[in-house]
Amino acid sequence: MRYLVGLALAIISLSLILSGCDAMGELGINWHGLLGQFVSFGILLALLIIIGYKPITKMLDERSQRIKESMDQAEFIKQETTKTEQMVQEQLAEARKQGQDLVAQAEQIGERLKEEARQQAKKDAEAIVARARSEIKAENEEAIAQLRKEFVDVAIQAAEKVINRALDKEAHRQLIEETLRESTDLKEKG
């Protein structure tokens, strides 16, 4: 409002000065033309503000705001993506590590099992061998005992035949057993 008052005052005063001056008149300066131009310019200014500058600057601001927002959003999304990627990478690495651990563990277990089996097998084999050996020994001893018994009988029969007299069978047997033991002892010592 103050602006308009100032404008009007300036126009009036300047027009008065100018209209009183002949040289100015030669150039075509006159307050009628000046006033017409002022009115025209005022109308143009008002119209351009209403239909031109206001909507366009509003639109420009809106657009720059939009662009800024989308840029921010894009930046945010980019950051998120980077973060997610990093997370995925971390998870992948962890999974890989876990997998490797599992494999290593399994290998270890396998190794242990193999070792155990080997040990077991060895033990079993040894046991079998030992049993076999003891059996063999037992059989051997039995066979020796059998043989000895048979030999004693044979020897008794032979001695009966040789001396042709009936000896006390039990006494003989004792005697022979004793002899045999002695001989065996001798053999073992010798």
Partner: peptide, 19 residues
């Protein structure tokens, strides 16, 4: 080319600047 137009613009410019 009408001197009233440049004069008017000069006055608008002057008044605006002072305002």
């Amino acid at each position: 080319t009408d001197i009233n137009v440049p004069l008017m613009l000069a006055l608008v410019s002057f008044i605006s600047v002072e305002y």
